[in-house]
Amino acid sequence: MNTKIYCLEQCFLPKNWELLLSAVKNVAGFCKESGKYDIPTLPVKLGHSLSKCAKVLRTKAIMEDNEDVKKSVEGFLKLYEDEWNERISVKARQTLYDAKFN
């Protein structure tokens, strides 16, 4: 498995999905034991930014008639739509909720 992403476009390759999720959790300080983030707003913001960048790249691919890039980005967006909330955002929002009421 590739353990490095060298440019933003590589984030949108579906084969790098697990690596991307791991990187987001790492940069936001996710703790497996507690299921909480050190910086809980960061994964939510990163998700929104990644989604926007993917849509820009998809538009560029459509304009350039690049089916390979378009297909990869659409795969990424499908993964994002299906999994981001469940695997990233829910735990981030729970961390925020817990911090607010503790």
Rank of each mutant, 00 (worst) to 15 (best):
R58H: 11
L46A: 03
E74F: 02
E86M: 06
K91L: 14
M1D: 13
K15W: 09
V73T: 04
R93V: 09
M63D: 14
K4Y: 03
L79N: 09
K55Q: 13
K25H: 03
V56P: 06
K52L: 11
Y80F: 14
L77C: 07
A99Q: 08
N66I: 11
K25E: 03
K36L: 12
I5Q: 03
G35A: 01
S72K: 11
P14F: 06
N102E: 12
W17T: 02
H48A: 12
C53I: 07
T59W: 08
I62P: 07
K100T: 13
K70Q: 14
T95W: 01
K45R: 14
L13T: 08
N102M: 10
N2C: 10
D98Y: 07
L21E: 05
N2H: 13
N2F: 12
C7G: 10
A61W: 07
L57N: 03
D82I: 05
T3W: 08
A23N: 07
F30E: 03
K15N: 10
I5N: 01
K32M: 11
T41M: 11
P43Y: 09
S89K: 04
D65G: 09
L57I: 10
G35R: 00
Q94E: 15
N16L: 06
Y97I: 08
S89F: 02
F30Q: 03
A92L: 07
D82L: 08
N2L: 15
K45P: 05
V56K: 09
C53R: 10
S89I: 02
L8Q: 15
T3M: 06
I88Y: 00
K78Y: 09
T59R: 12
L8Y: 10
L19E: 00
L57H: 05
K60R: 15
G29R: 01
K71E: 15
E67P: 04
L20E: 00
L57M: 10
L42Y: 09
K91Y: 14
A99M: 11
V56M: 10
H48M: 07
E74Y: 00
